[in-house]
Amino acid sequence: MKRTRATKEESNLEKENKDYLLFKGCLIPSSLPYMEVAARRALEILEIKITETDNFSCCPDPIGIKAISELTWLSMGARNLCIAQEIGKDILTLCNGCYETLKETSHALSEDSELLEKVNKILLPLNRKYEGNTIVKHIAEVLYLDIGTNQITNMIKKPLYGLKVAAFYGCHLVRPSDVMNFDDPEEPKSLDELIVALGADSLPRMRKMFCCGAPLLGVNMDLSLNIAKENLDNIKTSGVDCIVTLCPFCQTQFDRNQKVVERRFNKEYNLPVFYYPELLCLALGVDPYQLGFDLHIVKVDQVLNKIK
């Protein structure tokens, strides 16, 4: 491991105050509500309190909006951080994109006082002023560091023995590593360990840390689907039963677009795609009927039957 992660001591300190401000993002609440259900249920069972607000905007998107104007991207991000600052809580995100934008914005504005001043000038007509240093965490980080894999293993009621899983971390959970500083950018282990904590196996594969290709959907469809295909081929070859993601963009790319890739390249993958909190909920004993699995495009029954 090249980078140091937050130590267990630090995470123990936080254990007394597990109360986060939930940043739902755009895509999950509107298009993938089943991801929100699983995240909420898992946090509830693991006794992580959440506070909510309706005042957040789009994070905004670290690829499109940042490519158009870095200053617009930073200013919108800073406005969201201001809201967390006013409420006085750390942010918990459900999406890798929100995670990168908010964490990087917090990082950049805390390091560079000139830039902070510039952004605060833009926020002035909004009657907001960002002070810096807001803590932003991804739900995977909270599960891995605040709760810990031992505690998760202790709490599960229905271990997922025999289930073979492909861990799909997604780029922005770990890169750029000097900013995200959560797990290794090339050989991360948090998600693999979180999967193993449920009793399942996380199998190795080629090019595990490849981008899912979703950022290119609005730029060049062919390119995006070719990258998705590369991933799906490698995942299929690894011999898993399903894919596990941590991000709504990866989730969409592999669940909804799996069929598109199959049609276009005359392939058959048949790989159900779960958001990690969904698998966690199943292992914690949540009734599958509460989790909205019918909203998945690739049917998940084969996996549900296997772990029954």
Partner: peptide, 10 residues
């Protein structure tokens, strides 16, 4: 076409 995955940066 750059999808901003940061592999190059790393």
């Amino acid at each position: 076409f750059c999808c901003y995955c940061h592999t190059c940066l790393e």
